[in-house]
């Protein structure tokens, strides 16, 4: 049975995910059906013009689909079905175009917000945060107000915050779009290096071909109506095609 093989794979798996917008005049198709597998440590890119429903797809995967939309299909993470789980129980981190650092918390406060509560003790938590900052060469920013940081610094803190929450998969919603060209390349490698190092299955949506090229993984093309145009396998020849 194919379902069994589906359940045995590690990584992030989407099966027949489809999003529609129910209106009084019937259902409006937004995106899908999409089926794909993102193995651990690999980046799969979904390419499409703006407005094709990429962000809704990511919202469905992490469980924050706007209540006005309805989604179908299954989301599996490391063989566990998370389709019905609340977002906070899925362990799927997401980065947006904007860093969305909480302006009422310091840099360390933002990172501590992400750090799971089972790491106990002020000291232990502080050390963990300092280690993460040091590793990104940003230790001096511990007490800073996020609004005093540059765009690139804020983007890196946002990634650190997500990584500290110990996600099992990473979703990227055009997180490089607002950075200038020089910064974009550096931040891209920063994100992809971390994702690979932690073995995270990573799903990137973008309309920038350079993002996809840097990601180096398989690509899936979506048209303006949210339909799959087919994928071009890259990297290790993984098959992003349709699962049963």
């Amino acid at each position: 049975m194919s379902v069994i093989s589906l359940n045995q794979e590690r990584g992030l798996i989407l099966s027949q995910v489809e999003i529609t917008h129910p209106t009084s005049r019937g259902e409006k198709h937004i995106i899908g059906p999409v089926s794909l597998t993102v193995p651990p440590g690999e980046v799969v890119t979904v390419m499409g013009p703006s407005g094709c429903g990429k962000s809704s797809l990511l919202a469905y995967i992490c469980g924050t689909l706007a209540p006005g939309l309805s989604g179908g299909g299954r989301v599996l993470l490391n063989s566990a079905e998370v389709t019905a789980a609340p977002p906070e129980a899925r362990h799927i981190g997401i980065l947006f175009q904007d860093d969305l650092l909480f302006p009422h918390l310091s840099v360390a406060g933002n990172l501590a917000f992400g750090l799971p509560p089972d790491l106990r003790g002020r000291r232990a938590r502080r050390e963990r945060i300092e280690a993460a900052l040091a590793e990104a060469d940003m230790l001096a920013f511990y007490d800073r107000d996020p609004t005093t940081l540059s765009g690139g610094q804020r983007a890196r803190i946002a990634l650190l915050r997500t990584l500290l929450s110990e996600p099992r998969a990473l979703l990227l919603d055009e997180p490089f779009a607002k950075l200038d060209v020089a910064l974009r390349h550096r931040f891209r490698s920063f994100v992809f290096d971390h994702a690979r190092a932690q073995g995270l299955p990573t799903l990137l949506v973008t309309h920038d071909p350079q993002d996809a090229a840097d990601a180096g993984g398989p690509r899936l093309q979506i048209d303006a109506e949210g339909r799959i145009l087919g994928g071009r396998a890259a990297g290790r020849g993984h098959r992003p095609g349709n699962l049963p």
């Binding site: 992490c62 469980g63 906070e88 362990h91 947006f96 909480f102 917000f113």
Partner: peptide, 12 residues
């Protein structure tokens, strides 16, 4: 998206 980010960081 602030709330969504926080949810995805594991906050109830």
């Amino acid at each position: 998206r602030y709330a969504r980010t926080a949810l995805c960081l594991g906050a109830k």
